[in-house]
Design a protein around this nucleic acid. Structure first.
Lengths: 133, 133
DNA sequence: CGGGATCCCGATAGATACTG
DNA sequence: CAGTATCTATCGGGATCCCG
């Protein structure tokens, strides 16, 4: 048991690198917006506030669990606010904060790039797939 | 068997929505850059071309499998080129294409946003976690 | 040196059912 | 209406071995 195996050393390196990545703001942000539902929620809320069930319907395909989970994490990061109105049927509204709106703008930039270059990517993909080798 | 269950209908909706998402350039791009290693590889290659093993060392923590897989998919999308030099020990260089460089610029924008707003996010997170409830 | 093929495991998405 | 709890199936990703 004495000697450290190569596997253990690599494991150590991996953990350190993971820590490095987690402390990197860029990767944190990438992790955040890469989440399957985050971009959809942000996009859905960009026009204005919306209720929980309306979001569920607009995003169609999301399970209550994932919707709640996504909304919670976005709320935690200060990207949206959660407002509970204790009426007879409870009413909960979600709305982007200025920070959330700012993120929405960034997503727009991503969207623009995507739409501008998607054809090149698709072409490259076809060429690659068509290669004889 | 005649009647379609609610579960089946939801399943259908999910599949359609999935298809919708997959056809959306923005989500394709998000899927791409959200990949754990893609941003790191692009970032590593931004200064210039690099060899396979150099990449592996610079990114430290990536397994050969993931590195190869990442490089292949990026090559397929026309974001980088792969050059094989059949010398005695084989030599393979990777280099960003103009399209890849363009993506690198987008990642820079993401990076800028991240560094500009990370403090707000962290503060919001602390506040949220500190809440009594 | 630069990979491909295979096996395996932990994380997590999502379906379902229940609650205030 | 707006969630929560639980269970399961899937799958990304790492380890390992092997090849050209």
């Amino acid at each position: 048991m004495a000697t450290t195996t190569a596997a253990q050393q690599r494991e150590k390196a991996r953990i350190e690198y993971d820590a490095f990545i987690k402390n990197c703001p860029t990767n944190q942000l990438l992790d955040r917006i890469s989440d399957k539902w985050v971009s959809l929620v942000v996009c859905a809320l960009t026009p204005g506030s919306m209720r929980y069930s309306d979001l569920g319907r607009k995003i169609a395909g999301v399970s209550p669990k994932m919707l709640t989970q996504t909304l919670r994490s976005l709320e935690r990061d200060g990207l949206l606010t959660r407002t509970v109105t204790p009426s007879v049927p409870v009413r909960v509204d979600y709305e982007l904060t200025p920070l959330g709106t700012s993120l929405s703008c960034l997503l727009s930039a991503v969207k623009d790039w995507a739409e501008l270059h998607i054809e090149q990517v698709n072409k490259a993909r076809d060429d690659y797939d068509a290669e004889p080798s």
